[in-house]
């Protein structure tokens, strides 16, 4: 997993719960990296799992809610680092529909070792989009956070429903309706 996902996560934890909480979850987890992350490095996904589940234990906030909040936070990185990519799209539906065939293709060009989820479009109209998220990482809530912020970025609102097609969350259907 790319280092920026860790550094951004720990910064968010620090801003919301303080440096002590960062120190606590790192100490509680068994990390090969020792908790030292740089955005340009690559680390085991298992480290992220441990950090999130320890944070959830310590704060009594569910991992799903934590991932949702983190996804919403992570959109800032995209806004700051890749504004020209966001500028290519006229609206949120158009942008979300092109994750698989455009955005992820571009990501792969820069980070050829990036491991990305797949989004398969089931149905798309001007104001609705239905697609299936697939990833062994089960981070669909992180995706939902990014989606929420996408609508906000385009000054739009949406009703986004998600339904697990597999219990472990590796396959989730998103039904998006712009309002």
């Amino acid at each position: 997993m790319k280092g920026i996902v860790f550094t951004e996560f720990l910064e968010l934890v620090e801003s919301k719960f303080g440096l002590e909480m960062v120190d606590q979850i790192i100490t509680q987890s068994e990390l090969v990296s020792g908790g030292s992350y740089t955005s340009i490095g690559t680390y085991e996904f298992g480290e992220m799992l441990q950090l999130i589940s320890n944070l959830s234990k310590n704060t009594e906030v569910s991992t799903d809610d934590l991932l949702l909040a983190y996804g919403e936070h992570f959109f800032n990185v995209i806004e700051t680092s890749y504004p020209q990519m966001l500028a290519m799209y006229q609206g949120p539906i158009e942008m979300l529909a092109s994750i698989e065939n455009h955005i992820h293709v571009e990501v792969k060009k820069i980070y050829h070792d990036a491991e990305l989820p797949t989004f398969t479009i089931i149905e798309q109209t001007e104001n609705t989009l239905s697609m299936i998220y697939q990833s062994s990482r089960s981070m669909h809530m992180f995706g939902l956070g990014l989606m929420n912020r996408t609508f906000k970025h385009f000054n739009a609102a949406a009703e986004i429903r998600h339904e697990k097609l597999k219990d472990d969350g590796t396959e989730v259907q998103f039904s998006i309706k712009m309002i």
């Binding site: 120190d23 340009i40 490095g41």
Partner: peptide
């Protein structure tokens, strides 16, 4: 806590330097 955070930041910086 600060000491450990500092140590982590230092290690991260070294790691970044190595990668770069």
């Amino acid at each position: 806590v600060y000491q450990r955070a500092l140590a982590r930041e230092r290690n991260a910086r070294k790691e970044a330097e190595r990668i770069l």
